[in-house]
């Protein structure tokens, strides 16, 4: 079938595309999904700038790796993209072509953007099942609680977590590894358009790395753009990244393929530091 679209202007095109094409085939993308234009991030309290103008366009489902040493600004950038109140953001952040910089964190999440946090919070007295049921109903349009919980069990299983975890209080008294895995299952439950994963591999044993990689793969299978922040290449042995970004001192100093991962594995970040200096960093 041939579709002829008479393009009046960009906005009309995007709307038509979103309404008609995307409903026919979930793989169809009408616009770049996440776009960052010259995004600068500073800490509100001190005024110190920690990200010095990042531009990136993530256009199709896949795994986008952000690597860099501690203090490169990776987590700050991710939290700034989510709208954390500690950061002041300059530049534009677009999700599905819409500027989201004025939206609250919850509104960003409802539009399909989320972050797997390095430090998931405990919610005392609230069971994992309740959190997951609410999320699955809201983000996946599931109406029955039984069906939502069925899916929740399946998502936990993807991460090697027992179904009995549903009865535990959310994140309360869990080990580091359990937290990381449950957090990824939570992100999966939201079926996000864009998932920012902030070091899902840190503090996870080798055995569990494969499970984390499974979850990332499943996110991509379900059509998500995955932005995977890490400073160790171990997890990447299990994944096929679409693109690799290397950050150093608040700048993206290199964009490329898997060869960048290998270079970091072999040489560390010394070369990135040099690139950052030549880009004007102190």
């Amino acid at each position: 079938m041939i579709l002829v679209l008479i393009v009046v202007d960009e906005e009309v095109f995007i709307n038509m595309c979103l309404h008609y094409l995307a409903s026919l085939a979930p793989q169809v993308r009408c616009v770049d999904l996440l776009e960052l234009y010259d995004v600068k991030v500073s800490v509100k309290e001190t005024g110190r700038r920690i990200v010095h103008g990042v531009t990136a366009r993530l256009t199709k489902p896949g795994i986008y790796i952000v690597m860099g040493p501690n203090g490169a600004g990776k987590s700050s950038l991710a939290n700034a993209v989510m709208g954390h109140e500690a950061y002041r953001v300059e530049g534009r952040i677009l999700l599905d072509g819409q500027d989201i910089t004025g939206l609250s964190t919850a509104e960003r999440a409802l539009r399909g953007l989320t972050l797997a946090s390095q430090n998931p919070e405990e919610i005392e007295g609230v069971r994992v099942s309740e959190v997951f049921a609410r999320i699955i109903k809201r983000f996946r349009g599931v109406e029955s609680t039984a069906e939502a919980l069925g899916l929740a069990r399946e998502l936990l299983e993807t991460l090697g977590l027992p179904a009995s975890m549903l009865n535990r209080e959310y994140m309360v008294g869990m080990s580091g590894g359990e937290r990381k895995k449950l957090e990824l299952a939570r992100v999966l439950a939201q079926k996000p358009k864009v998932a920012l994963l902030d070091e899902p591999d840190s503090g996870v044993d080798v055995e569990s790395l494969r499970l984390v990689a499974n979850a990332v793969g499943r996110l991509v299978d379900e059509g998500s753009i995955v932005v995977l922040i890490t400073h160790q290449p171990r997890l990447l042995h299990y994944l096929e990244p679409s693109e690799v970004y290397v950050m150093y001192n608040g700048r993206v100093v290199a964009v490329g393929g898997y060869e960048l991962v290998e270079r970091i594995e072999n040489e560390g970040y010394g070369w990135a530091a040099q690139l950052a200096r030549s880009a004007g960093a102190p």
């Binding site: 989510m82 709208g83 954390h84 109140e85 609250s104 964190t105 919850a106 999440a109 409802l110 989320t114 972050l115 946090s117 998931p120 919070e121 919610i123 005392e124 007295g125 609230v126 309740e130 959190v131 609410r134 999320i135 809201r138 983000f139 209080e169 939570r186 939201q190």
Partner: peptide
Amino acid sequence: YYMALMGFSEEEATWMVVNGFF
């Protein structure tokens, strides 16, 4: 903020935390 990442507004998050607290 963490609960907002799940799409919960401040009111909803507060309500859930209070229920959990009780």
